[in-house]
Write a protein that binds this DNA or RNA. Structure first.
Length: 277
DNA sequence: CGCTATCGGGCAT
DNA sequence: GTGACGATAGCG
């Protein structure tokens, strides 16, 4: 999931970069998407329990790509399941079951601990650094960049911005180019008319977004941890926060304007607590 | 109409 | 694991 619609919304703040720009530096790499993509190439074998090693090919190729450009990869694996994501995890398991019944194998792909272990073994042999996150890789990737252990995170997951990761590279291509979004660069993000999204509407606006409103916008638009407010995406959440200037007033505004069922009451309590309000 | 949200689905080889 | 992209639907 990630935050639906977030990347298009802030795409004006992204710039094209090359891996050459990171020569001699460390990139913290999200292993899960690489493993999933690799696993699609042998989805049937995996679904039917046949031995398969083809899923290693794609992640190893991406690592080779980084090394070819003089970049030091730090591979980050998902660790334990998040209790708060239990509902989402259960839904995905059910989806995999029904996909298997229909013979749609590439929708049944599930990265097992054994598969992760096989990749880790290769990384050990090849001298590639890695860490296993306590829970989800996302927050670990953000931590590594925030504390200077990596120059940027390399992922496909928009959640990295919600975690306030200072620098994120998306959509790495075979040519070694990617789109970079820095958290600080969001200050200059614009809408389609060239108007700033997070600054300029009032004195100190960017500081407010940086300090919590941006994260609130992401949560309101829908995350894996809370039932989202129906009919509210990134654009509506942004509008409400900009008009209200605080989470409380933005939520009140959405309530008064919206027809249909009110937001789940638990969502608000969690949101406010998550933001320390 | 214009804007926004949602749905289905590719990714690799 | 998440989401480009095009289509569709619901609202003001």
């Amino acid at each position: 999931m990630g935050v639906q619609g977030l990347l298009p919304f802030v795409s004006s703040a992204s710039t094209e970069v090359s891996l050459e720009d990171y020569r001699g530096q460390t990139l913290a790499c999200d292993a899960s998407v690489w493993l999933h993509r690799g696993a699609i190439s042998c989805a049937r074998e995996l679904a039917e329990g046949e031995p398969a090693v083809g899923f290693l090919r794609f992640p190893l190729r991406m690592i080779a790509l980084l090394k070819r450009h003089g970049v030091r990869p730090l591979i980050v694996f998902d660790g334990g399941a998040m209790p708060m994501k239990a509902r989402v995890d259960a839904a995905r398991a059910a989806d995999r079951e029904s996909a298997k019944a229909r013979g749609e194998f590439n929708k049944t792909v599930k990265i097992t601990a054994a598969m992760t272990q096989q990749l880790i073994e290769r990384l050990r042999q090849d001298g590639v650094e890695f860490v296993v996150a306590p829970f989800e890789a996302d927050s670990q990737l953000a931590f590594l960049v925030q504390h200077g252990h990596a120059a940027a995170a390399l992922t496909e997951d928009s959640d990295l911005l919600a975690y306030r990761c200072p620098s994120v590279l998306f959509k790495l291509s075979e040519s070694g180019h990617a789109r970079r979004i820095t958290f600080a660069g969001l200050q200059h993000a614009q809408d389609s008319k060239g108007q700033l999204l997070f600054d300029g509407a009032w004195e100190g606006e960017w500081a407010a977004w940086e300090g919590g409103l941006f994260v609130a916008m992401c949560i309101m638009a829908g995350c894996d941890y809370l039932p989202s407010v129906p009919g509210v995406g990134v654009a509506t959440a942004h509008k409400a926060l900009r008009a209200g200037r605080t989470v409380e007033r933005a939520l009140a505004k959405l309530h008064s304007k919206r027809s249909g069922p009110p937001a789940p009451v638990a969502a608000e309590a969690y949101l406010l607590r998550a933001l320390g309000l």
